[in-house]
Amino acid sequence: MSKANAFPDLMRAFFYEWLVEQRNASIHTVRSYRDTWRLFLRFAAQRAEKKVAVITLADLTADGVAAFLGHAEHDRGGTIGTRNCRLAAIRSFFNFVATKDPASIAQCVEILHIPVKRAPVSEPCYLDPAEVAAILAQPNRSTLEGMRDHALLSFLYNSGARIQEALDLCPRAVRFDSPSCVRLTGKGRKERICPLWPETVLLLKKLLERQPRALDQRLFVNRYGKPLSASGVRFKACGLCEGGGRNHANVAD
């Protein structure tokens, strides 16, 4: 490995050999790390007055990482949680570098010693049954989109699943026979079984009757048959919460 090409080679090895092949990281982790490094390299290049393509490992100092984290939190308006996720992605790379390039261990250690930032813990908020019923009443269930929205909202309420867990749901993960349940795959590929109410099972069955899906296909899709995105669902769900009488609103188009 030549000195001039050390950083590009290390970055490629980190993503393709270590993160994907050795760690078998989920696609969501890979995308999160990719986005962090895209932002960090742009920031480092601007700070060093260089182009991203000529950035070297020596340009990525502990001071630079700390400055980037401050930029991500304050200038970009990110949360403390997002700031800590960015730090985790950077730390992971420098942990890898320490095993591949002993000459850079001192630099790696400085970066690895950057602490995570503690965030205040707020009390959890929740909806009372009347508020949930009002939200579930918003989709127009005479349309396919409204039927999908109602089923998705009901499934989230029943299971307590994260939005991405619900959007990744395939029919084969649902046990429709009694006792009905669903197998959810969460962060770190951890699986858990959640019981389903008869009402929720009926809604999922009706949705599959109107819009059949193979056992390994996503259950909740848009009008073009493509998987829904979490950002689209959140945007439309906010509209439902604020929409009051807009009973024709859809969670995601």
Score class of each variant (00 low, 15 high):
residue 138 Q to W: 00
residue 251 V to S: 01
residue 80 I to F: 09
residue 87 L to E: 10
residue 194 C to T: 15
residue 158 N to V: 04
residue 148 R to V: 07
residue 148 R to D: 02
residue 111 I to H: 01
residue 220 F to E: 03
residue 220 F to S: 01
residue 1 M to I: 06
residue 44 A to P: 02
residue 12 R to P: 01
residue 37 W to G: 07
residue 188 G to F: 07
residue 190 K to P: 00
residue 106 A to H: 14
residue 235 F to Y: 14
residue 49 E to M: 06
residue 164 Q to K: 05
residue 40 F to W: 04
residue 104 S to T: 10
residue 187 K to V: 05
residue 232 G to V: 09
residue 64 G to W: 07
residue 226 K to E: 12
residue 212 P to H: 06
residue 250 N to F: 03
residue 42 R to S: 13
residue 35 D to T: 12
residue 13 A to N: 08
residue 184 L to R: 05
residue 197 W to Y: 09
residue 227 P to C: 11
residue 30 V to H: 11
residue 49 E to V: 03
residue 37 W to F: 15
residue 105 I to L: 14
residue 188 G to T: 03
residue 90 I to W: 06
residue 190 K to F: 02
residue 131 E to Q: 15
residue 231 S to H: 14
residue 111 I to L: 10
residue 100 K to I: 07
residue 243 G to K: 08
residue 165 E to K: 02
residue 126 Y to E: 10
residue 143 T to C: 03
residue 212 P to S: 03
residue 137 A to L: 02
residue 140 N to D: 15
residue 123 E to V: 08
residue 38 R to H: 14
residue 3 K to Q: 14
residue 86 R to M: 14
residue 131 E to V: 13
residue 117 K to A: 14
residue 71 H to E: 06
residue 106 A to S: 15
residue 120 P to K: 08
residue 185 T to M: 08
residue 58 A to M: 11
residue 9 D to N: 09
residue 119 A to R: 08
residue 183 R to L: 10
residue 51 K to G: 09
residue 206 K to G: 05
residue 71 H to D: 13
residue 64 G to V: 05
residue 131 E to C: 05
residue 52 V to N: 01
residue 198 P to G: 02
residue 22 Q to R: 13
residue 13 A to G: 11
residue 30 V to Q: 15
residue 194 C to K: 14
residue 107 Q to R: 15
residue 208 L to W: 08
residue 63 D to K: 13
residue 253 D to G: 05
residue 200 T to P: 00
residue 249 A to R: 01
residue 14 F to W: 10
residue 22 Q to A: 13
residue 45 A to I: 03
residue 243 G to I: 08
residue 187 K to I: 06
residue 131 E to N: 13
residue 118 R to H: 10
residue 119 A to E: 12
residue 7 F to Q: 10
residue 205 K to S: 02
residue 48 A to R: 10
residue 200 T to S: 03
residue 23 R to T: 03
residue 158 N to A: 05
residue 54 V to N: 09
residue 32 S to A: 15
residue 116 V to G: 08
residue 104 S to G: 05
residue 61 T to D: 04
residue 53 A to V: 13
residue 188 G to M: 05
residue 8 P to M: 07
residue 205 K to M: 03
residue 71 H to T: 06
residue 26 S to C: 11
residue 1 M to V: 13
residue 34 R to L: 07
residue 67 A to R: 11
